[in-house]
């Protein structure tokens, strides 16, 4: 019970727009336990970015929290003051963004930036610099002491992403949010970064919320997985359960679609026809029904709840209900 670090409980978030409320997140529930890696999988429009900005409370002015709580270490972040949030961000919760080219200030040396982010610490500057060098070494940057004096443009994309990770881990956060951190990188560098992240996570005992659309990376890195579709959680659970016995048609089809999944050369690759529904005008019933080839009458009329379908495994699909299968 006490090992839960982040708990998203029935979170619903809307954006007020000229066309009416855009229901970006609807009844999202999942949790991240201490020192585990939870992956969030989903395609464009699934609500990943709204979720991250809601957790950090770095939200657009037209955002409306309609229901739910985001509990971090037991306290509700939606009720926290701006001052409390500031104290949390970059200290207990850190984030690594997708684009390693834009995360750093181009006019300050990397060392200076790494010293600056330790503003909470009272330690002398020399000590802070030493710590910065240690962190750079920890993420696998050779000759860290000398490279502290270099500027961001003198590093390659892969190196910059490592530096971003080093900076995020500097405060020894309890939770690291990684938002597609390897998407902009080549596969070879992606693998290096994932492996490094795994090592550091074990050493520092921090939890990671890893957002990616790359199923291979999620499968390799994460302990548990949350699958999102069009602003809702459709399935969540242990990584093996999700990849080996998916209980939601979307998860199943998504895994089938990954070309890495198909061993022999295929002339016709599987796809999920159709489009994500308009979130400003949500149809009745299951959000996936229009693209689902197993949809029934019931799926047209009622939203399936996210329910337990086995140990450490939840899914939101009527097909898992006995009444239907019977």
């Amino acid at each position: 019970m006490t090992d839960v670090l982040l708990e998203i409980d029935n979170l619903s978030v809307d954006y007020e727009t000229a066309r009416g409320d855009l229901k970006a997140l609807r009844n999202i529930s999942f949790d991240v336990r201490k020192a585990e890696i939870v992956g969030i999988v989903g395609e464009s429009g699934c609500g990943k970015s709204t979720l991250i900005s809601s957790i950090l409370r770095l939200i657009a002015p037209n955002t409306r929290f309609r229901s739910g709580e985001i509990r971090f270490d037991g306290s509700d972040l939606l009720k926290a003051t701006e001052r409390e949030m500031r104290a949390l961000r970059g200290d207990e919760i850190s984030i690594v963004f997708q684009d390693p080219m834009q995360t750093h200030n181009p006019v300050l040396s990397v060392g200076q930036q790494m010293i600056d982010i330790q503003h909470r610490s009272k330690a002398p500057k020399g000590e802070k610099r030493e710590k910065a060098a240690q962190m750079l070494a920890a993420v696998g940057i050779p000759d860290p002491e000398a490279r502290l004096d270099q500027f961001p443009h003198e590093f390659s994309g892969g190196m910059r992403q490592r530096i971003a990770i080093a900076m995020a881990l500097m405060s020894e956060p309890n939770l690291l949010i990684a938002d597609e951190p390897t998407t902009a990188l080549d596969a070879t560098l992606e693998v290096q970064i994932i492996e490094r992240l795994q090592e550091l996570q074990r050493e520092m005992d921090c939890a990671i919320l890893f957002i990616s659309h790359h199923l291979g990376v999620i499968a390799e890195l994460c302990d548990r997985v949350v699958v999102m579709y069009a602003g809702a959680v459709v399935e969540s659970g242990d990584v093996r359960k999700i990849f080996h016995e998916p209980k939601h048609p979307y998860t199943r089809r998504l895994i089938e679609c990954d070309p890495g999944h198909i061993k022999t050369r295929a002339r016709i690759l599987p796809t999920i026809p159709g489009e994500v529904p308009d979130l400003a005008n949500i149809p009745d019933g299951c959000i996936f029904r229009d693209r689902c080839n197993q949809a029934t009458e019931r799926c047209m009329a009622h939203v399936p709840p996210l329910e337990s379908v086995g140990e450490e495994h939840m899914a939101a699909c009527w097909l898992n209900h006995e009444e239907v299968t019977a």
């Binding site: 596969a187 070879t188 992606e190 990376v217 499968a219 390799e220 990849f243 990954d258 999944h261």
Partner: peptide, 11 residues
């Protein structure tokens, strides 16, 4: 190396 750096969707 390139071929081996291709994570598969299987834990």
């Amino acid at each position: 190396c390139l071929l081996s750096a291709n994570p598969e969707p299987d834990p």
